[in-house]
Design a binder for these strands. Structure first.
Lengths: 187, 187
DNA sequence: GATAAGATGTACAGATCGGTACATGTTTTC
DNA sequence: GAAAACATGTACCGATCTGTACATCTTATC
């Protein structure tokens, strides 16, 4: 039961869950795709739910690391980073493997508010909200909590709209809206 | 095979699909909940997919009718209606049966872009976008297409955030952001 | 009231679901 | 090299999945 083997299983499961969905992905499919036996799979993860939670943890870590790093690559000032976040979203949307936000989908497939998967999805969004609010505070805007939430709404809206309506360039529209909101909160 | 019987089945299926999700809802459960026999169910709908599509059609009709009617109840001017739309969203979010947007969830569970269910979910969003854009045009804003899309992004963002982050009152934040964007597009 | 036509219920097929029992193979320790 | 500890593969469990075959029941028509 090497620990890196487990990580490899989580990485592959994450890929398949993201691509095909949670209910639509059976453990048998994961066993085939990872090449491991079913017994080994259930040695590492006692239930499918435990595997999903591990995949979500990895996704949260990967995504937020990438998201924040790319934002800081593009701008050095808090105000600039608030705007740059929408350019980073655009990069994400243009990946051909883009399938929307895994946490929105997790929260949608496991809707009970106290379900562990739902709770973990909510936690991811709360961390993103905290990040945006923090940037707003550093940028010295009037009401950081409000603007942080408003910019998060634009991001979330762009994420789901990028799945369903390719034609309307949601990242660009969201960026322009964010700029207007930011200017309004700075003056 | 009375036609109103079919409508009744669609209505009940809509309720269960919205509550529990698509993959998580089996035909057996629907047969039990509707009281009809399995044979009759498959006489009305040849496949589960056909039933889902019928439920989505009904949902689209019900939702857009309700949404637009409530907006027109709250305001008579196009500019006022653009803002009022967020008050209507707030009413929706406060229903205890609120479980997010059925079309976002449908698009998430059936991700292939040419899948009939995905296509129908996208069509719903396109109709909402057209509605918002049309109101923008009537309100005489500078760039109706852009503002329409931006306000849609705020709505979509509020819808998904209302599922995952109850505490941050997304409808209110979205409404304030919409007001700023509208003022900016009018002057 | 006999007969045809359509609606319904039961029972099941074949596949897949999450999960496990158990036998075999591999490594470690003495 | 024997024995204990661990990892793995096969084969299966009962439940549930979508969908169907077929017998029964109701209703309309003559």
């Amino acid at each position: 039961m090497r620990p890196n083997k487990r990580d490899e299983l989580v990485r592959k499961a994450l890929e398949v869950f993201y691509r095909d969905g949670f209910h639509a992905t059976g453990m048998d499919k994961l066993v085939v795709e990872t090449g491991v036996s079913k017994t080994s799979m259930y040695k590492h993860f006692r239930t499918k739910e435990e595997l999903i939670l591990a995949a979500l943890r990895l996704r949260d870590e990967n995504f937020r690391n990438w998201f924040i790093r790319r934002i800081e690559d593009l701008s050095e000032t808090p105000a600039g980073q608030l705007i740059a976040s929408f350019d980073v979203l655009k990069e994400w949307f243009e990946e051909d493997k883009y399938r929307g936000c895994m946490f929105i989908k997790a929260g949608a497939e496991y809707q009970e508010k106290d379900h562990p998967i739902h709770v973990q999805a909510a936690e991811h969004k709360r961390l993103l909200l905290d990040y945006m609010t923090d940037l707003c505070r550093k940028a010295g805007v009037r009401d950081p909590e409000s603007l942080g939430c408003q910019l998060l709404l634009l991001q979330e809206g762009a994420i789901v709209t990028a799945v369903l309506l390719k034609k309307c360039d949601p990242a660009q529209d969201a960026k322009e809206a964010a700029q207007v909101l930011l200017n309004h909160a700075l003056t």
